[in-house]
Design a protein around this nucleic acid. Structure first.
Lengths: 239, 239
DNA sequence: TAGTGGTCTAGACCACATC
DNA sequence: ATGTGGTCTAGACCACTAA
């Protein structure tokens, strides 16, 4: 065994992520058993297990005792909105209904280009939609996606799909979101946002700017949400 | 070995937390070596190690290879404001200066009582302070602490202490904060908050309501922060 | 140099899901 | 009944820190 810069379990972890990025296993698929992976990577099962521990902690894979280890998916998880931290003040965990406002081709602004590592004015797809609870708009989302990874995305495609956007991206474009970074601010509602969210002009809104990453820390979505936090709040756990 | 409801490493983890809550080791102290703990708990070092893995992941302990394992502390960590997610938009990571506005005895409101598991009108200590960067107020914090755990806390004590509040709580009152839950909202500045933060009346502010917990998930602080997010943002990592 | 945590192995046995 | 992940062990060796 050559003297290595990174520990073996870390190398194995990276090799598995690379295989996921290459599409060797798709979201929802079962991975080979730990014993099989140990043989493949010429390591003991304990070492493979440590690599899988980290992938499971990062929600990249999901283990089910007795059944196997599966690639994490947005298509049929416990919580469909895995990255949405907005919850109702009262425990009413009713889901959201969605309303698509538009989906159109556009060119990357300087800000979008920076976030997604594109060149300015590269083609992107811009999506705007509302999330509503009991008919009341709670979230106004604007999304920007690099066109080259989401070719064919349109209003029709979105409206025809029953699940969340991230599930759609996964099934239709083989883009699985692994993690995200969010920057939060309080802002005053513009006239446009106020009307769409049914609040007064200038009302305080929670602005959530998200960059989402797929396997290998590739940024593939910029999203700006405006949350109406009158009967909802953004919940965060710190440790 | 009796048949047990929880795995051995989980029992060991809980026993170590209980020992920390009982003050057997104080923040900054070195824990016994993994081999010593293995003997104490009649387990193998691998099992003890798994328990320590989880405690390290939760920032309850800190491992330093070659030196030992130490109880996490707020007194001399890398980041003094461990739970403060507010960062400047531009990478200028200058620290904050603090300005204490008041520290006084009060009675728990219904809301405070609920958050801290007290009875309504039990005595609490109320603290208000500002965090400033380059002379500009960025955060207005209100804290409520159960008086029975913080007897003797006063403006003089706070002003005489050079470190953060959590470091003070740890050194002087043996209350170490382990984790916290935050609820975020956008709100309009009241006249009082606007004046203290130097913003317009009604300006949007980020409201951060935090409940902080010590060992064993005991809630010991309720804090409400108002963040001025014009040149700063609340940064959150999702996975 | 002695002691600590970090890596890796080989294997036993258990709990659980699936067929 | 088979195969999976989950727990636990015993021990070797390495990398690092501190006296």
């Amino acid at each position: 065994m050559p003297k290595s810069p990174a520990p073996l379990y870390e190398q194995i972890r990276q090799l598995i992520v690379a295989a996921l990025a290459a599409g060797e296993w798709r979201p929802g698929d079962a991975l080979p058993s730990e014993a099989a992976l140990a043989e493949r990577f010429h390591a003991s099962s304990g070492t493979v297990r440590k690599a899988m521990d980290e992938l499971a902690a990062a929600h990249v894979v999901e283990r089910r005792q007795g059944a196997g280890t599966f690639v994490a998916t947005h298509t049929a998880p416990r919580n469909p909105y895995r990255f949405l931290r907005l919850v109702a003040d009262e425990g009413v965990t009713t889901g959201f209904t969605r309303e698509l406002l538009h989906c159109r081709r556009a060119r990357a602004t300087a800000e979008t280009a920076r976030a997604l590592h594109l060149r300015t004015s590269e083609p992107v797809i811009e999506v705007r939609r509302l999330l509503l609870r009991r008919g009341r708009a709670v979230v106004l989302d604007d999304l920007w996606l690099p066109e080259r990874h989401f070719r064919g995305l349109s209003s029709e495609v979105i409206n025809a799909y029953p699940g969340t956007l991230y599930a759609l991206f996964e099934e239709r474009f083989q883009v699985h979101m692994v993690r995200a970074e969010e920057k939060l601010r309080a802002v005053a509602a513009t006239a446009e946002a106020a009307e769409l969210l049914g609040v007064a002009d200038g009302a305080p809104l929670l602005s959530v700017e998200r960059v989402a990453y797929t396997y290998g820390d590739r940024a593939v979505e910029l999203r700006r949400g405006l949350y109406h936090t009158e009967a909802d709040h953004y919940l965060n756990e710190l440790n």
